[in-house]
Design a protein around this nucleic acid. Structure first.
Lengths: 202, 202
DNA sequence: ACCTGAACACCGTTCAAGT
DNA sequence: ACCTGAACACCGTTCAAGT
């Protein structure tokens, strides 16, 4: 059911996915699907939560520091997203409130609380890291891949960007496109962690 | 044209907006619309860029520190988003590559370069702040407002969350819902800035 | 009582026919 | 040459009719 929907989204993307398609795969009619969910939006929420259920930190939470724990959690999340790139638009368009999403949040927040974080900072840290990972994954998947491709005219505009008009942007773009990759992910993550370290005693 | 589309999106939301609707307002047919853009997606990209064009920093960039400049820019962006909450789903689902989006990016990156930032850090700072502001605005607009409402079953699940199962999440939720508002925005922004301060010499 | 084919009211996009 | 009404191939959702 949800697995079949996720598989289809993985294969054809959010845009192309339709309930008729799902009904065909399951060899039933579209009307029958509505016995399992109230609307397509609800089904998509289940799909997102299914993906979030695949996020598993390898080491059994025996991390020396909260910095290590955050890093491991963020990387596990990132690896999961890379296996389901087509689900990214759904993750960006909703706050995941399914059981798996909640469980993940609970795990990290509790871990931070255990390391002496005040509760507001722990909660804020979770969303900050989540946004970072999703944002990074989107960037890798290429601009406009999160949802429909941007208009061809705008893409053209972007490609033929005049360095004289946007010197900083173009030079930064060159730097960023020649950057390794996994390296970059860790770098930004370290930035957030540094911020959290400072934030603890503000 | 684009203004009419933005006005409609502001009024009825992304979900309800349709080309027929826009054609009616403009007193023409849907086919006529395609003389101005190649697809609905392209039109939406123009709408997003129109919104980004409304972001204006009040002080004429005479900030003592880059921290002040970033804060002012983020707040200007945030204020603009609050005037166009229904556009948020579009901003989350695409990397804005329109002229106004590029101009904003250029302005901040150049400012950071002027304060001695290395080019990669400046570029990364821009996206980090952008994600933060959009993420914060989404949070204010309420969960699920970015796009369709989450399924009622999931919302119910969220509301009747068992504090015994999710102690950290529920206690954090209580803390977060009773938080002032503008205060919170500045707090998270300060966190990012702290991270950037540390990141400059890593 | 449960299931579902067929219809409903849309949608974005195209194109032949009009001017 | 430009414009556009009408059609095309869909879509999510509903419900009366079948079992």
């Amino acid at each position: 059911m949800v697995s079949a929907a996720l598989k289809l989204v993985d294969e054809v993307g959010v845009q192309a996915f339709s309930l008729r398609m799902l009904a065909d795969v399951l060899e039933s009619g579209t009307a029958t699907l509505y016995r399992h969910f109230a609307s397509k939006d609800e089904l998509m929420a289940y799909v997102v939560d299914r993906v979030l259920g695949e996020v598993h930190v390898t080491g059994q939470e025996d991390f020396a520091t909260w910095q290590d724990a955050i890093t491991a959690g963020a990387e596990a999340f990132y690896e999961t997203l890379r296996r389901h790139l087509n689900v990214l638009p759904l993750l960006m368009a909703q706050v995941p409130v399914g059981p798996n999403g909640l469980a993940n949040r609970e795990r990290l927040i509790q871990l931070l609380l255990g390391h002496g974080f005040p509760v507001e900072l722990a909660a804020r840290a979770f969303t900050a890291i989540g946004h970072y990972v999703v944002g990074f994954a989107v960037q890798q998947h290429g601009p406009g891949s999160a949802g429909p491709e941007s208009g061809p005219q705008l893409l053209d505009f972007y490609r033929h960007l005049d360095p004289a008009t946007y010197p900083a942007t173009t030079s930064a773009a060159e730097e960023l496109t020649t950057v390794p990759l996994e390296e970059e992910f860790r770098f930004g993550l370290r930035l957030i962690i540094k911020g959290l370290e400072s934030g603890r005693d503000v």
